[in-house]
């Protein structure tokens, strides 16, 4: 078992370093957050995680705050994680899942958003298949916007919970090597992690078939490899991304079988990483494609901890965005 480090805490004391908490009007991505902001969110998440281990898992913090989950792309898990986080902070939650039915009726995203805004939510959590949709919403409606994943752009709360999990297990992340493997080009999880981890000093390596590596990815500061072995070698953690089954049969990879052989994580390849390296996956997994079942369920896997930490991280984000609303001029 790896040592557990309580984030932000000076050993031997019960008090924390006092950093002023900056308001967070929206959470659209990790690209524009500072290392201090990320750390303060994660420090707060550690407190939220403690709440989640109590018998009464509830805080009164967001009483009277209405949180709307606005999912234009389906993701039951992420929506549930956000709803649970909101409920544990005593917020009222509503959910609106649009698929693209409202678009089919000729209603624009802005029309839909203004209609939802009229119901008076304080925070809108948006999931959308188009990159930039949360930014559009943030410009349009007077609510705190939390990005729950937009197209191939960012999935900031996933990035935060991944970094939280790393920090919990590895402590100081400076100089740690993390390999992110898979369809980097189409992955919002990859982008949020590349942006966020590097701010905390992580040496980020991305790898996958070159068809899945986007143009100029190294401009984001990471190292890219068209094969997985150099990325995995000596890594402190390996994050496998989901290979979308619907992408098979198009021109990115020949077959899932071939993908597993050359790019999947099995016990043999895991040995390339540091002993005890963490195995991560944002879920849902394709066992036998990007990850071998024995690795997914192995003792190095922190995949379920990621899910658990997701609620705490989302509580921290909702608290910050919700409380920052109080600073907005009302009416």
């Amino acid at each position: 078992m790896l040592p557990q480090v309580e984030p932000g805490q000076t050993p031997g004391t019960d008090t924390l370093p006092q950093a002023p908490q900056e308001p967070l009007r929206h959470l659209l991505g990790l690209e524009h957050l500072s290392a201090e902001q990320i750390n303060s969110i994660l420090d707060l998440a550690a407190h939220m995680k403690a709440v989640n281990s109590r018998r009464i898992k509830k805080l009164p913090t967001l009483r009277g705050v209405t949180v709307l989950t606005f999912f234009v792309e389906n993701s039951t898990r992420t929506r549930m994680s956000f709803e649970l986080a909101a409920k544990r902070l005593s917020a009222d939650t509503m959910s609106f899942t649009a698929s693209s039915s409202s678009l089919a009726k000729g209603e624009t995203l802005i029309d839909t958003a203004r209609n939802l805004e009229a119901m008076g939510p304080d925070i809108v959590i948006i999931r959308h298949s188009c990159s930039g949709a949360p930014a559009l919403l943030a410009r349009t409606v007077n609510c705190g916007i939390v990005n729950a994943g937009d197209g191939s752009h960012e999935h900031p709360t996933q990035g935060l919970l991944d970094i939280f999990t790393l920090r919990e297990r590895l402590g100081d992340l400076r100089g740690k090597k993390v390999a992110i493997i898979g369809d980097i080009a189409h992955s919002r999880v990859a982008r949020s992690n590349i942006f966020g981890m590097q701010k905390l000093g992580v040496d980020v390596h991305v790898a996958g078939p070159a068809t899945m590596l986007p143009h100029a990815i190294e401009d984001l500061g990471c190292t890219a490899w068209p094969r997985v072995e150099p990325a995995m070698e000596g890594a402190d953690a390996i994050m496998m991304l989901r290979i979308q089954r619907e992408r098979q049969g198009n021109d990115l990879i020949p077959s899932s079988h071939e993908y597993h052989r050359f790019f999947g994580l099995d016990e043999q390849r895991l040995k390339l990483a540091k002993p005890g390296a963490l195995v991560m996956h944002p879920g849902p997994m394709n066992r036998g494609v990007e990850i071998a079942p024995e690795v997914a369920d192995g003792e190095q896997s922190v995949i379920l901890q990621q899910v658990e930490n997701g609620v705490a991280v989302r509580m921290a984000v909702l608290y910050l965005v919700g409380a920052s609303r109080g600073l907005e001029p009302q009416g």
């Binding site: 690209e31 930039g132 937009d150 197209g151 752009h153 919002r188 986007p214 143009h215 100029a216 401009d219």
Partner: peptide, 15 residues
């Protein structure tokens, strides 16, 4: 345009 910005913004690029 397919380039550093399309990668950063997660947009599909036109090379």
């Amino acid at each position: 345009h397919e380039g550093p910005w399309s990668t950063r913004l997660g947009m599909r690029g036109i090379p």
